[in-house]
């Protein structure tokens, strides 16, 4: 096992009845990388991510995450990953502090660790004065930044981000990407889906899914050269227009 590969997927497939949501995808993600996982709505991104994070059982193919097999060792995978879903998933009726404490606690972190790191994170997010406010009362951008901090609080090897910046204003989006870079610097591999092509440019490598298959995988620069495009937007449009599935 190549210790430098955080994710390896080989012909990973998920079928729901007759419908093949994810069709034999093969790729690898290297440690410390920011890996952009692009695709139109319904291309199969979320399903692929759910298989890799142990929420969904693959129909066929192989995959390992953090060195563990997705079929048999999904509980070990869970200890080593963070996950931020498309739906906001902190508890709105708990305070900022209580949410952090809860999620850190169920990952088995010690009280001392939780206390110290909570202080650091609140300070870093400039949310110290909001620590005892209910999460439901925060603006969306703050919630997303908090959710990301909670997802990596237990210092996982890898974090899955499913459209983390959907509906967030441009300033907060920039701050959010700043946080992603900081996380990557501490050695956390970032696996992120997005619909914003400017964000795709920030990634080290990008894959583009069309109709359940990975049609392209390269650095943003490499993709632009291959498709003779000036921007990632153009690359994406060229590929996504060929899609047969509707939204």
């Amino acid at each position: 096992m190549d210790n430098n590969k955080v994710i390896t997927a080989h012909e990973l497939t998920k079928r729901f009845g007759d419908f093949t949501a994810v069709d034999k995808i093969t790729f690898e993600v290297t440690r410390g990388e920011i890996f952009g996982f692009l695709g139109a709505n319904g291309a199969g991104k979320t399903t692929a991510m759910r298989m890799l994070s142990g929420l969904s059982l693959p129909t066929s193919g192989q995959a390992t995450v953090a060195g563990f097999d997705v079929y048999k060792q999904n509980e070990q995978i869970k200890k080593n990953i963070g996950y931020m879903s498309q739906k906001f998933s902190l508890y709105e009726d708990l305070t900022v502090k209580e949410n952090i404490r809860f999620y850190a606690g169920i990952y088995g972190k010690s009280d001392a660790f939780i206390k110290e790191k909570t202080g650091y994170i609140l300070d870093h997010l400039h949310m110290t004065s909001e620590a005892n406010k209910l999460v439901g009362s925060l603006p969306l951008g703050w919630k997303q930044k908090l959710a990301f901090s909670v997802a990596i609080f237990h210092e996982p090897q890898l974090v899955f981000l499913d459209e983390p910046t959907g509906g967030v204003d441009p300033v907060t989006r920039r701050e959010f990407w700043q946080m992603i870079y900081e996380a990557a610097e501490t050695g956390i591999t970032v696996f992120v889906t997005t619909h914003y092509m400017d964000e795709a440019e920030y990634c080290n490598r990008v894959s583009i899914m069309v109709d359940g298959r990975i049609e392209a995988l390269d650095t943003p620069g490499g993709l632009k050269r291959t498709f003779g495009a000036r921007s990632m937007d153009e690359v994406f449009l060229k590929l996504a227009r060929a899609a047969k599935r509707s939204e």
Partner: peptide, 14 residues
């Protein structure tokens, strides 16, 4: 409904 159960499901909570 809110989606928090999915978040719990990706944690090591048994």
């Amino acid at each position: 409904e809110v989606g928090t159960i999915e978040q719990i499901n990706v944690t090591p909570v048994r």
